[in-house]
């Protein structure tokens, strides 16, 4: 099992008056090569769930194992390495850095690895070519369309060749044609062996996933 989450609990502002219980006893197992769609209404806890899987926040309860490693017990530096090497993250708003061009954005995760400078650039170019956006490499991100921006974000997520891609509403800011194109790219990646977990509230998009996990009020519902 690649990802195993048992009885995950997440409370924001724990112990305070404004405590929010975002996730309640959430359990999920994901095999390598899965394409899981996390579907739920706004505020249901799906993004929180994705962030826990991505090692960006620590759950307040439960266990999380990634490929046998206890993620919850990791130190900050180990967690940072985990995010760098095991997880690729695609955001709804792309999360591209405006002070850098396309190539530099794709290079970003590799900057935090031990890769050599020369290899970093080569790998970034390889990804841009794969996604047919190599002609945009010198563009600043504010000169890109929504679809192009999201493809750059996907390229960045793939930079370290992570086993898992987490996509948080990746089509949320795209029109239907561009969404379809992006989904094609994600499915292609999945077919190549990359595990993908995608948050969406779009039923049509979610139907293209191999598995659909529904989440409501912080609880995972039966598939």
């Amino acid at each position: 099992m690649l990802i195993e989450l048992n009885q995950i609990d997440m409370k924001y502002n724990k112990g305070q008056e404004n405590e929010v219980h975002a996730l309640k006893q959430a359990s999920l197992s994901v095999e390598q090569g899965d394409f899981v769609g996390l579907v739920g209404a706004s505020g249901s806890g799906k993004t929180t769930f994705l962030q826990i899987i991505g090692g960006m926040i620590r759950p307040t309860g439960g266990d999380y194992f990634f490929d046998g490693m206890n993620v919850r017990a990791m130190k900050d530096s180990q967690l940072a390495r985990f995010r760098n090497q095991k997880i690729g993250y695609v955001l709804q708003d792309y999360g591209l850095l405006r002070d850098r061009n396309v190539l530099e954005n794709v290079c970003l995760p590799m900057m935090f690895s031990h890769m050599k400078w020369h290899d970093v650039e080569n790998r970034a170019m390889e990804l841009l070519t794969e996604l047919h956006i190599d002609h945009l490499k010198a563009r600043r991100v504010n000169q890109l369309s929504g679809g192009q921006s999201q493809l750059v974000a996907v390229a960045r997520a793939l930079a370290m060749n992570p086993p898992v891609i987490l996509a948080d509403e990746p089509t949320g800011s795209l029109d239907s044609n561009t969404s379809a194109h992006l989904m094609e790219s994600l499915i292609k990646l999945n077919n190549a062996g990359t595990t993908i977990l995608m948050v969406t509230h779009n039923e049509e998009i979610s139907r293209q996933c191999k598995r659909i996990v529904r989440i409501r009020d912080g609880r995972l519902l039966a598939e």
């Binding site: 530096s77 985990f82 995760p109």
Partner: peptide, 16 residues
């Protein structure tokens, strides 16, 4: 700060 957030997501610890 947005750069900082992306650095974090992409695998840089807060300390670094």
């Amino acid at each position: 700060r947005e750069n900082f957030a992306m650095y974090y997501i992409c695998g840089l610890s807060r300390k670094k």
